[in-house]
Design a binder for these strands. Structure first.
Lengths: 140, 140, 140, 140
DNA sequence: TTTT
DNA sequence: TTTT
C-alpha cells in the first residue's frame, strides 16, 4: 500500500541515446535525460523567452531494454513515473543529492519507432552490449 | 506556448510549517517539504518495508499566502506543479543542484483547515510576518 | 502495449456507499459515484457559482473489496484510472451510452479509515455480502 | 476555489478534422473525437486483443482556433482537461447524457504542424469558416 | 521533518 | 447523491 501520491508525467526529447547497463542479477537499467521546454513572452520587455529543463530518468527491467532498443537522441517520449532522491559521493568525496524520475511507463511519440536514425543505418546492438552497471556517471 | 509536458502530482504531508517570505516587489514565496511514502512487503524476506521521499515545493504569489495561512506541519495536501532544477553555491563555495516542484495548484485534504493544531491554540499571524526573502536555506 | 494515454485523476467524495457485487468466477466489482465540484465568482454578476460533476467509477478485484470495506458515503478519495465507454439497453429497449472511470488506484483521504460512520457503530460485513452481480443499475 | 480534482490526460489520434463553430459572442468552440487504444495478449487464449476508446473533446476560445488551424484527422495530440456531463434531448425527444472532456491544454505530437496533410494541398481556411454554433451533432 |  |  502506498501513502500519498508521487507522480510525474513528462513529454520531451532525449538529450542523448539511453545508457543501458545490466545489474549483476541480469536486470537492465536505462539512464536517460529528457528535455522539456516552455516559452512565453515577457510582457515587460516584450521579448520571447524560453526555459528548458533537463530531467534525469531511470528505467528498469523490460522497459529499460525497450528504451535501449527503440529510443535515440532526439526521440520524443511520454514518461510516467515517480520522483526519487538519491545520495551519492563525488570523486572529491563531497556528498551530493540528485533527484531523478523512476519511470514505470514509457511511450514513443514519434515515427522513428523502427530504430532508424537520421545518420543512416543503425546498429541495433550498439546500445545493447552488456556493460557492467558499476561505474556510471552519477549525479548531474 | 510550451513544448513538452512537465507535470508533477503529489499527495503528502508537510514536514514543517511552510516558510513564507516576500520578494522586494511584494510577491509572496512559500517553501515547504512534502513527504510521500510507499510501503510494500519484500517477498524474499517477507518483511514490511517503507520508503519515504521528501519533496521540496515552492509556491508563489497568492497561492503562497494561502499556504502560509492554512497549511501547517502535518497537513495533507494535493500539489500540482512542474519540476525545476536550480543551481546554487553553498557556504563552502561548492556548486550544488537542487530539484524542486514549482506548484501551481494546491488543495488541502484534511479537516485542519481551521488552522487548529495539535499543540493548542495557534497564532494565525505567525507565518504571516513579512520576512525578507534574501537569506534562506537553499538546497537541501 | 498501449497506444496512447487514457488517464483520469479524481479527488472527490462518494455520493453513497459503494455497491459491491461478485462475478460468477468470484471476482469483486465495486460501483460508486464520486462528486467533484468547482466554485468561482461570476465576474459579470459578482455572484458565487458552484458546479458539481458526478463521476461513475468502477473498480475490480482486490481494490473493489477494499473500497467495499473502507469507503462510505461522504468518504474523500483519490482515484486514478481510465475512461471507458459502455453501451447498454434500458428497460424501454433504448440503446444508451455511459462513460465511466475504471479505477486502478484508490486512496482514502480522510480519517474515517476506521470504518466509523456518522450514524454510530458500523457493521463492516454489511457491504460485504456476496450479492449476485447480475441485476444492477446500469447507465445513469 | 475548486473542491476536488477532476483531471483527464489523453494522448491519442483525431478521428476526424476538428469541427470549429463560433458562439454568438464570437468565441470559438471546437469539437473533436480522440482515439486511445490499448492492446494486450489474452493469456487464456494466447490471442492478441485491442480495445479502442473514443473520447469526445470540446475546446473553447483561442485553443479552439489553434485546434481548428493545426489539427487534422489522424493528428496525434496531448490533451489535458476535465470531465463534464451534459444532458441533451435527441430528435425523438429522448433525454440523453454525454460525458465529454473539456480541454484546457493541447499539444500537437506529430510533425504535421505545418497543416500539410496526406491528401495533397490543404486549404487552411476550410475549418475556419464562421459557422453558426447552433445546430451541431450532439451526444454520440 | 510528515503520515498511518 | 457528496463535500466546504
Amino acid at each position: 500500500m502506498s501513502k500519498g501520491i508521487n507522480k510525474v508525467i513528462l513529454i520531451g526529447n532525449l538529450g542523448a541515446d539511453p545508457e543501458v547497463r545490466y545489474m549483476p542479477q541480469g536486470g537492465a537499467v536505462a539512464n536517460m535525460t529528457i528535455a522539456t521546454s516552455e516559452s512565453w513572452t515577457d510582457k515587460s520587455t516584450n521579448q520571447k523567452k524560453e526555459q528548458t529543463e533537463w530531467h534525469r530518468v531511470v528505467i528498469y527491467q523490460r522497459l529499460a531494454e525497450i528504451a535501449g532498443d527503440y529510443l535515440r537522441k532526439g526521440s520524443k517520449v511520454y514518461i510516467e513515473g515517480k520522483l526519487r532522491n538519491r545520495e551519492w559521493t563525488d570523486k572529491e568525496g563531497i556528498k551530493r543529492y540528485t533527484t531523478e524520475i523512476v519511470a514505470n511507463e514509457l511511450q514513443m511519440l514519434d515515427g522513428k519507432q523502427d530504430g532508424q536514425q537520421q545518420g543512416g543505418y543503425q546498429q541495433p546492438a550498439q546500445n545493447n552490449q552488456r556493460q557492467p552497471a558499476g561505474r556510471q556517471n552519477q549525479g548531474r
